[in-house]
Amino acid sequence: KKKIKIYIENENGEKKTIEIEVEGDIDEIAKELAKKYNVKIVKIEP
């Protein structure tokens, strides 16, 4: 498992940072999160 930080922006332009532990393809997981929460991924840090 890797701990990563995902910087997101919602439709109101509010920026947030999510810190999660992931296993597998980080890009795939980030895309799923973006779709699920309707946010834009700004940056992903390993």
Score class of each variant (00 low, 15 high):
Ile4Val: 12
Glu11Ser: 13
Glu14Lys: 06
Lys5Arg: 11
Lys15Trp: 08
Asn12His: 13
Lys3His: 12
Glu14Phe: 11
Ile18Gln: 01
Asn10Met: 15
Lys36Glu: 06
Lys15Ser: 12
Asn38Ala: 08
Gly24Arg: 03
Lys35Gln: 13
Val22Phe: 12
Val42Ile: 15
Val39Asp: 03
Ile29Asn: 02
Asp25Asn: 11
Glu45Tyr: 06
Ile44Val: 08
Lys40Leu: 10
Lys43Ser: 12
Val39Met: 11
Leu33His: 01
Asn10Phe: 15
Gly13Met: 04
Asn12Ala: 13
Asn38Cys: 05
Glu21Gln: 06
Ile18Gly: 00
Glu45Pro: 02
Val42Met: 09
Lys40Gln: 09
Lys15Tyr: 14
Lys2Tyr: 15
Val39Arg: 00
Asp25Tyr: 02
Lys3Tyr: 14
Pro46Trp: 15
Gly13Cys: 07
Glu9Trp: 04
Asn38Met: 04
Lys36Pro: 00
Glu23His: 10
Glu11Asp: 09
Glu45Trp: 09
Glu11Lys: 12
Gly24Asn: 04
Asp25Val: 06
Lys3Ala: 08
Ala30Lys: 05
Lys31Ile: 08
Gly13Thr: 01
Ile29Ala: 13
Leu33Met: 06
Ile20Ala: 03
Lys36Gly: 01
Ile44Ala: 01
Val42Gln: 04
Lys40Thr: 13
Asp27Gly: 10
Ile20Met: 14
Lys2Arg: 13
Tyr7Lys: 02
Glu19Lys: 02
Lys2Glu: 07
Glu21Val: 10
Lys31Thr: 10
Leu33Thr: 02
Glu45Val: 09
Ile41Leu: 05
Ile44Met: 05
Ala34Gly: 05
Glu9Gln: 07
Glu45Lys: 02
Lys35Trp: 08
Lys3Ser: 09
Lys2Trp: 14
Asn10Tyr: 15
Asp27His: 09
Glu21Ala: 08
Lys1Ser: 11
Thr17Asp: 03
Glu28Leu: 14
Ala34Pro: 01
Lys36Leu: 10
Tyr37Gln: 03
Glu19Ser: 08
Asn12Glu: 09
Tyr7Gly: 01
Ile29Trp: 13
Glu14Trp: 08
Leu33Glu: 01
Glu45His: 06
Ile44Thr: 02
Ile4Trp: 15
Glu23Tyr: 13
Lys43Met: 11
Ile41Val: 08
Ile41Phe: 05
Glu23Phe: 11
Val22Glu: 06
Lys3Asp: 01
Leu33Trp: 14
Lys40Met: 10
Glu23Gly: 07
Val42Lys: 05
Leu33Lys: 00
Glu45Ser: 04
Lys2Thr: 11
Lys5Ser: 06
Ala30Arg: 05
Pro46Glu: 15
Lys2Asp: 06
Glu19Asn: 04
Lys16Ile: 13
Ile18Ala: 01
Asp25Leu: 05
Asp27Leu: 14
Ala30Trp: 07
Lys15Leu: 15
Val22His: 07
Val22Ser: 06
Lys5Pro: 00
Ile6Cys: 03
Ile41Asn: 01
Asn10His: 14
Ile20Gln: 02
Lys5Leu: 13
Lys1Phe: 12
Glu23Pro: 03
Lys1Val: 11
Glu14Ile: 08
Ile44Asn: 01
Lys16His: 15
Glu11Tyr: 11
Lys40Ile: 14
Lys31Cys: 09
Pro46Arg: 05
Glu32Tyr: 13
Gly24Gln: 03
Ile41Pro: 01
Lys5Gln: 05
